[in-house]
């Protein structure tokens, strides 16, 4: 059986797990590259109000449609006890079915770890049973998948680059003493098509990057818990906790928050973080809003100005670099 995995949204979090799981069950796994065609078809097919990553996801489904036996579009309700993912993930399979005539089979099993009885193995069983009746094989494939996922996350923690972490021959982030943090949802900060390759641009200017996935979970949790109220969006909590923890790091010279236009979670969490940063620190901070523009001029101008500012503040004198 050939399974298509759209290269968007939770692909950027769980691809190693899913890929290994299906491959161990003797399925072929296919993805499609993000490019202008995918973007164009996504924008055309998707509901107008959705954010850019959701639109691109639609484009990927469209480009896989008919070329594979099944497309894996899980309904990811919750990946953490007492927490939710974005509302758009909850209805993602429905959104897709409504907008695209999918001729391949859709695997839309549900991940919901919110309540007491949420169990990942139930999800694995349900998903695997579409492929095989052998419960033992499913169990083993899932265990292998989790192992791969764990190894991948370790590599990502070191390099902060999704593609390098995926390949096992990842080269570590060229160690530079000064870091710029890139915050945002994984499917924004690791999709170099959406984010106009921001990580490379920052590295070229002599900084290494740090992302929320490079910070230990318990540190993120500790800082996020400083909020007066416990909050229930997993990705929002991760960004907030990561952002607040970075304010104490002297090697972090600036924070850039990448947000996609009309992201509901960011509209609250990013704003909250921005206020906290301004109130409790001198950390240079910038929010960049991404949408479907392919002209990079506006993006580069803001990034250049931000890095100029960071350097200028560091040196506290008036000589600035001549290019950039």
């Amino acid at each position: 059986m050939k399974i298509g995995i759209p290269k968007g949204l939770f692909y950027f979090k769980y691809y190693p797990l899913w890929k290994t799981f299906f491959e161990k069950l003797d399925c072929g796994v296919v993805t499609s590259p993000t490019n202008r065609k995918v973007l164009d078809s996504g924008v055309k097919l998707c509901a107008d109000e959705a954010c850019l990553p959701v639109k691109i996801y639609h484009g990927h489904v469209d480009s896989l449609n008919g070329k594979v036996d099944a497309i894996f579009i899980p309904r990811i309700v919750s990946i953490m006890k007492h927490e939710y993912t974005c509302p758009k993930f909850l209805g993602l399979p429905e959104m897709i079915k409504n907008s695209i005539k999918v001729t391949s089979r859709i695997i839309d099993t549900t991940v919901n770890l919110r309540g007491q009885h949420g169990d990942l193995f139930d999800f694995a069983m349900e998903t695997g049973s579409i492929v095989t009746k052998d419960r033992y094989a499913i169990m083993n494939a899932f265990r292998d998948g989790l192992h791969e996922q764990h190894e991948f996350e370790k590599r990502l923690k070191e390099c902060g680059d999704f593609e390098s972490a995926l390949k096992k021959d990842h080269d570590r982030n060229i160690p530079r003493p000064e870091k710029i943090a890139i915050l945002g949802h994984p499917y924004v900060i690791y999709d170099s098509y959406i984010n106009m390759d921001i990580a490379k641009k920052i590295q070229r200017e002599g900084y290494s990057i740090i992302t929320p996935q490079m910070i230990e979970d318990d540190i993120i949790r500790k800082y996020a818990s400083k909020l007066p109220k416990r909050h229930f969006w997993t990705l929002g909590r991760e960004n907030l906790g990561a952002g607040l923890s970075l304010l104490k790091c002297t090697d972090v010279k600036g924070i850039i928050y990448l947000s996609s236009f009309c992201c509901g979670i960011d509209s609250l969490m990013e704003d909250y973080l921005e206020r906290q940063v301004a109130r409790s620190s001198n950390m240079p901070y910038m929010k960049l809003v991404l949408d479907e523009h392919t002209g990079e001029a506006g993006f580069n101008t803001r990034l250049e100005a931000f890095l100029d500012m960071v350097r200028w503040r560091e040196q506290n004198e008036s000589n600035v670099s001549t290019h950039g």
Partner: peptide, 9 residues
């Protein structure tokens, strides 16, 4: 040009 600089700076 000798200097190519963003407009904010």
């Amino acid at each position: 040009a000798d200097v190519v600089k963003n407009e904010i700076t």
